[in-house]
Structures are given as structure tokens and as C-alpha cells.
Design a binder for these strands. Sequence first.
RNA 1: CGCGGGGUAGAGCAGCCAGGUAGCUCGUCGGGCUCAUAACCCGGAGGUCGCAAGUUCGAAUCUUGCCCCCGCAA
Length: 308
Amino acid sequence: MKIVFAGTPDFAVPPLQAIYKAYGSDLVAVVTQPDRPQGRRGILTPSPVKEEALSLGLPVLQPERLRSDRDALARCGADLMVTCAYGQILTQEILDLFPMGVWNLHASLLPAYRGAAPIPRALIDGCRETGVTVMKTELGLDTGDMLLSAKTPIYDSDDCGTLEERLSRLSAELAVEALAMIGEGNFSLRKQGEGFVCKKVQRTEVDFAKSAREVSCLIRGLSPAPFAYARIGALTLNFWFAEEVPCEADVPAGTVVGASPKEGLVVKCGTGAVCVTELQPAGGRRMSARDFLNGGKVREGMRFERLS
RNA sequence: CGCGGGGUAGAGCAGCCAGGUAGCUCGUCGGGCUCAUAACCCGGAGGUCGCAAGUUCGAAUCUUGCCCCCGCAA
């Protein structure tokens, strides 16, 4: 059973490694997005999947548009393709290249959170549980029939980074399990029910008028990128992590009610308060709230203000 | 030449604009108080002020060049 793997970001690396480990040279090619300009100086950077594929000695394809470059893919002569956060929409022509189908690893419990950013979205929405689904790709966006899924709880200590890492490892396990079933032809598929699509997440200004849980979930869902941020005085702060804390103080939402190195940066919300434990001022490095407060730039009683 | 912030004790910062004995908060070490403490009080150690050159009697501070870090935007 010859396999092609298509993926791009860090999330797809563990699945790639797991499939390589299980199938070795039957993994005949890796497809990934073209190198893109990254960072402040716009340096052309290969995707994490490309780097891993090269270090495993696997052939790499990175067409600008897969649909208009199907010949190279056809020449691989693979029986099936596994996709994982590849980043391009497949066409029927592409799907038809693989007699045993195209299978997608998706980081949600489908049919919830189809589309671009299932992990941060689940976190932002305050879900208590999420997971990974293996599905057979069809033309609709993540609407194909499901083969396998696995769940994991979302903890209050999770941010997008930790959750993504956990789901990535789950995906890797699930991928190997799924391939075994497909290889033996011993499986059945389940239809998806009514679901919904989620969009890519953007950098977002925190609205402290919302509940402490909403604020905390937003901060954790957007960390470690693209971040929830807020302005206080002349400073803009990117928040890396925050937890909910009880708060009796009768002050406007956004007011700093705790700014000692001991208690951390505590900010009043619509209901309750959040304690920011890890943050990054614009221009500065990531630091603990404790270190930040030692600088003395933010004191109790100051207030986060939204401009717009 | 995309816009911008920054490099001062182990950490986070002030001092720079109007050059002249290195400061704050925290940590750390020692001592004290206490039944006790992450609390409180007293004391100490710890800094080539990113690098180089220049101006000056004198540069963390002014000028020039270089290195490094970071936020936004792509």
C-alpha cells in the first residue's frame, strides 16, 4: 500500500513521523505548501513538514496549486493519500488519483469545527472536550464520512499550544490505526450530521466586559499566536496565559485590581476577574506577570482601555 | 529600503531630552522578629551601562558605525 502524505504546519509533523515509522518506504512522497516568506525580514522558509520530510529522506512536492500540477502527484502511483492541515482545497481530479481514497486528519470532533482553526475555536468557545477525526475526503469542506475519532478533555491549564500538541499526538496514533484498517479493508464509515465551519482566528483585543471565563478562554485560545491583546496607558500587551479568579471588587471591568508580584496581574471582568500569569509587552520578550510587574509600569487601579 | 520598541547587577525596569559620585522592585546571601511563614525589619554581595570609534576636563547620557532581541504589518 503506497501512501502520499500531505501536510504543512507543526501539527502535521507527528502524524508524518508515525506513518513513516509504520510504513517506511511505502510512504512514497510528501506534499506540502511552497516555502513562504516568514518573519520580520521576509525570509523564505520551508514548512515544518518539508523540513521533517527532507530529514527522513522522503521526496517532497510543493506545488503552488495542487490542482494544476496533478501529474507529479499521479506519477507517485500511490494507493491513497493522507492529508493533515495541508492548506489547499482538493479537487475531484486529485481525489480520483487514489484508488483507496484520500483520508483527512482533522483536529475536531466532526461535524463540529470543520474548516480552518478548530483548535483555537474550541478553546475560545469554552469547550470542555475536543478531539481528532479521521474522515474520507470528499469535495465538501471536512464533510466526508468518518472512520475513527478520539477525544481529549480541554483543561483550564490548556492553551492553544498545549492542546495542539496533544491533538497532534492523538492524530498520529489515530492515523496509524486508520491506515491499518484501510489496508485490511476492514472498516465502516459513519455519516456526519449537521455541523458548522469555523474560520481562521485573528489577533483580537480583549473585551474585559465579558465574563472571566470568556476572557480566559480567548487568551488561551489565541496563545501562542496570534494572541489576545489589550492596551493600558501607552503599553500594548500580548497575553500568553490567564486563569479565572474570584473577585468581589466593585470597579469597572478592565480595572487592575491586583498588581503585586505575589498575586500577579489581576484584571476585573464583567463577572469575576482574570489573573494574567504570562504576557509580553510590545517590543519586549515574553515574561511572567511577576517579572513584568516588577518593572512598575502597571499598578493597581489602572485600567485597560479599548480605543475603538 | 514596510512601520515601530528595546539592549543598564540573576530577573523586570528608571536614569538619557537640559553630560558630572549607578537608582527602584524582585531574587540571592547573612542577621533579626515570630509558635511559624511565601509575612515583616536590618544589613551585604553582585553592573566592562550591547560592541567600537568620536566630541569633552569628564559620556549610561551627545555624534557616527556595527551586532543582537522583540511588537505590528506582510
